[in-house]
Write a protein that binds this DNA or RNA. Structure first.
Length: 207
DNA sequence: AACTCGGGGCA
DNA sequence: TGCCCAGAGTT
C-alpha cells in the first residue's frame, strides 16, 4: 500500500475513534500544563493526576511556586518519583519564568528547551498542545505506533518525526499526535499487544 | 551519538 | 532481585 493511502486510512480510523480529542483541563493554562508534563516524565498519568490538584491548590503560578519553595514542592510531588530532581527543576524553572519571562511560559521550542527539566519531548508537547504549533512530540509510544504501522523505519526520534510529518498533512499534526497517544493506550500497548486485535496494526503492519 | 542517572514496572 | 525502560543532561 502506498504511504499516502495508508496515512489517509489511518487518519480516518483515528478520527472515528477519537473525534476532536479533548485537551485535558490542566492543559489550558500553559504554566500548570508545563508543570504537569514535567511531573509526567517517567511516570504514569494516574499518579500525576492524583497529586496535581494538591500541588496547584498550593501554587498555580510561578510566583506562588517560588514562594512555596523547593522542599515543600518535593514533599507534595513525592508519589511521582524523581521527586528531588523534579522539585529542583520546577523551583528553578519558576524562578527563571519570574525573572526573565514576566511569569509567562515562553512559546518557542528553543526557549522552552533551555529551561531546567525541559528536554525535547516536553518542549514539543508544550508547543504542539499548549501553543497550537504544528508539531509531533515523538516519545516511545508515538515511535512504537509509527514503527508498527510501517510509517517509519527510523531508529531515532528525529527520523520518526520527519516521517510522520511527511505522512500527515501539517494542520493535523498536533491532533494526530494526541490521537496516537490515546490510540496507543487503548488499542496498541507496548506489552501484550496482539496485532490482530488492533484496528490499525491488523492491516497496516508489515510482514 | 553515546553514555549516565534515579527510579518505576514487571518477571 | 535483577532487567529493562523513559527522558533529561552531559560529553
Amino acid at each position: 500500500m502506498k504511504r499516502e493511502e495508508k496515512a489517509k486510512k489511518i487518519l480516518k480510523i483515528l478520527n472515528e475513534l477519537f473525534p476532536k480529542p479533548e485537551i485535558p483541563l490542566t492543559h489550558r493554562d500553559p504554566y500548570t500544563f508545563l508543570i504537569a508534563v514535567i511531573l509526567s516524565q517517567q511516570c504514569t498519568d494516574a499518579r500525576v493526576n492524583q497529586i496535581t490538584p494538591l500541588l496547584f491548590e498550593k501554587a498555580k503560578t510561578p510566583k506562588e511556586m517560588v514562594k512555596l519553595g523547593e522542599k515543600k514542592i518535593e514533599d507534595l510531588i513525592r508519589p511521582v518519583g524523581l521527586a528531588k530532581t523534579k522539585a529542583r527543576n520546577i523551583y528553578e524553572l519558576s524562578k527563571i519564568l519570574v525573572s526573565s519571562y514576566d511569569s509567562e511560559v515562553p512559546k518557542s521550542f528553543d526557549e522552552l528547551l533551555a529551561l531546567p527539566g525541559v528536554g525535547r519531548k516536553t518542549a514539543s508537547v508544550l508547543v504542539s498542545q499548549a501553543f497550537g504549533e504544528d508539531a509531533f512530540a515523538v516519545d516511545t509510544h508515538i515511535h512504537r505506533l509509527a514503527k508498527r504501522w510501517g510509517l517509519t523505519r527510523g531508529k531515532n526520534r528525529e527520523e520518526t518525526e520527519n516521517d510522520l510529518k511527511a505522512a500527515f498533512p501539517k494542520k493535523t499534526w498536533s491532533q494526530v499526535h494526541l490521537q496516537m497517544i490515546y490510540f496507543g493506550r487503548s488499542y496498541c500497548p507496548a506489552r501484550n499487544h496482539n496485532p490482530a486485535d488492533c484496528p490499525i496494526c491488523s492491516w497496516a503492519m508489515e510482514k
